[in-house]
Structures are given as structure tokens and as C-alpha cells.
């Protein structure tokens, strides 16, 4: 693995970002637009999870984003929680032309809060902004919702590439700033975000035990 050495040298510059949201809101196309600048009109629903990476510049530093594109229809919490595991950022996507997907944002948010790192940076993304004539979710509503839940917010269109770049840029910048400031605060220079995830795992065993208690 030739890349390992490289990664080892710049361990803190790789961040995992997870794309979540209802099935069919355009997560996969957001990803393909961002990483390959492609758009596929008749894409099938994602099976499981797909990965992609892309490097971007933040504050004159190259950071590598590893993006997990998840299946919106995944039913098993065991699996979805695996998606959130280790993620330092999440793009919570809804479809501006389908109000239901916006309503479900609350549910997704809850899941994030339940399973993901509490420090996770979340961005609310209203996708398909090109479908102006079909808009079902007013920008204002979404903005209000975002500020209520302390999320950043952006409207994008994977089809005409509006704001896609910006959305990823913003969230990665946020993540970078938070992580680096945290690293400074904690003074643990060797610790990296993924390491954090590890700590998280270790710190979480209480959760499954609780659940186990419930199940049995």
C-alpha cells in the first residue's frame, strides 16, 4: 500500500464525511458531481455504501475528504450506525421538491445525534434547486430549521452543479477548523480525527449494553 506512507505523513488531513438523507434525494449524484464532475439522470438507488475521495484546499492546506455515500433506504441501525462511525462531518440531504424528505430531516438528525460523534459537523443540504417550479420546501423554512438545530445550510443542484463544490468546501473547512482548534485545545498533536472515532468507539460500549438490556 503505497499510499499508507503518504497518509502516515499527513494523518490529520483525511476526513470522513457521510452523506445521509432519504432515498432518492440525490446523494449519489452530489457525490459524483463533487468527485468526478458527473451526473447520471437514471442512477439506481445505492446498495450499501460507496466511497469516494477528493482532495481540496483549505486555508492553504491540502486535506483529503473521504466521502461515504450511503443508501437512504437502509433499515438496519447496526449498519447505519456503522456509516456514522468515524464520520467527522455529515451532509444531511433533502429534496426541495419533496416535502416529505424535509420532514424526515428531523428523524435523520436524531439518528445522527444518537449514533454519531457528538462533535460531528452537520450541514443541511437542500438538493435539486434546479427544480424551482416544483419547490415544496421554502428556503426560509429550511434556513429556520437549520438555525434552530445549529446546522449550516445550503441549497445545491447536482444536475447543474450549483453550490455542490461550495457545500463540500464549506463543511470540510468547518471540520478542519474545529479539528485543528480541538487538537490545539487538547494539545494532542498526534491524535487525528479518525483516532477520535476510535475513542468514540471505546467510549460508547454503554450504549449497546443498554440496548442489549432492552432487547433481552
Amino acid at each position: 500500500m503505497a499510499n499508507d506512507e503518504y497518509d502516515q505523513r499527513h494523518p490529520r488531513d483525511a476526513y470522513a464525511v457521510v452523506l445521509i438523507g432519504d432515498s432518492g434525494v440525490g446523494k449519489s449524484n452530489l457525490l459524483s458531481r463533487f468527485t468526478r464532475n458527473e451526473f447520471n439522470l437514471d442512477s439506481k438507488s445505492t446498495i450499501g455504501v460507496e466511497f469516494a475521495t477528493r482532495s481540496i484546499q483549505v486555508d492553504n492546506k491540502t486535506i483529503k475528504a473521504q466521502i461515504w455515500d450511503t443508501a437512504g433506504q437502509e433499515r438496519y441501525r447496526a449498519i447505519t450506525s456503522a456509516y456514522y462511525r468515524g464520520a467527522v462531518g455529515a451532509l444531511l440531504v433533502y429534496d426541495i421538491s419533496k416535502h416529505q424528505t424535509f420532514e424526515n430531516v428531523t428523524r435523520w438528525l436524531k439518528e445522527l445525534r444518537d449514533h454519531a460523534d457528538s462533535n460531528i459537523v452537520i450541514m443541511l443540504v437542500g438538493n435539486k434547486s434546479d427544480l424551482r417550479h416544483l419547490r415544496a420546501v421554502p428556503t426560509q423554512d429550511a434556513k429556520e430549521f437549520a438555525s434552530e438545530n445549529v446546522l449550516s445550510f445550503i441549497e445545491t443542484s447536482a444536475l447543474d452543479a450549483t453550490n455542490v463544490e461550495l457545500a463540500f468546501q464549506n463543511i470540510l473547512t468547518d471540520i478542519y477548523r474545529i479539528v485543528s482548534s480541538k487538537a490545539l485545545d487538547q494539545g494532542e498533536s498526534s491524535q487525528n480525527p479518525i483516532g477520535e472515532r476510535r475513542t468514540l468507539e471505546i467510549s460508547k460500549p454503554a450504549d449497546p449494553e443498554n440496548k442489549g438490556g432492552k432487547c433481552c
Partner: peptide
């Protein structure tokens, strides 16, 4: 191959969720 993809997710589940592995 879609089935294979689904299958491969089994390995992604952390050991905490052992019981749900059974359901899956």
C-alpha cells in the same frame, strides 16, 4: 453482485451490534 454488495456490509457492522448481525 448487488447481493454481494449487501453481503459485504456485514463486515462493516461493529461488534457491538452482534445481535442485529443475526437479523441481517
Amino acid at each position: 453482485f448487488a447481493a454481494l454488495r449487501e453481503l459485504s456490509q456485514i463486515y462493516l457492522i461493529s461488534s457491538k451490534h452482534a445481535k442485529e448481525i443475526a437479523t441481517i
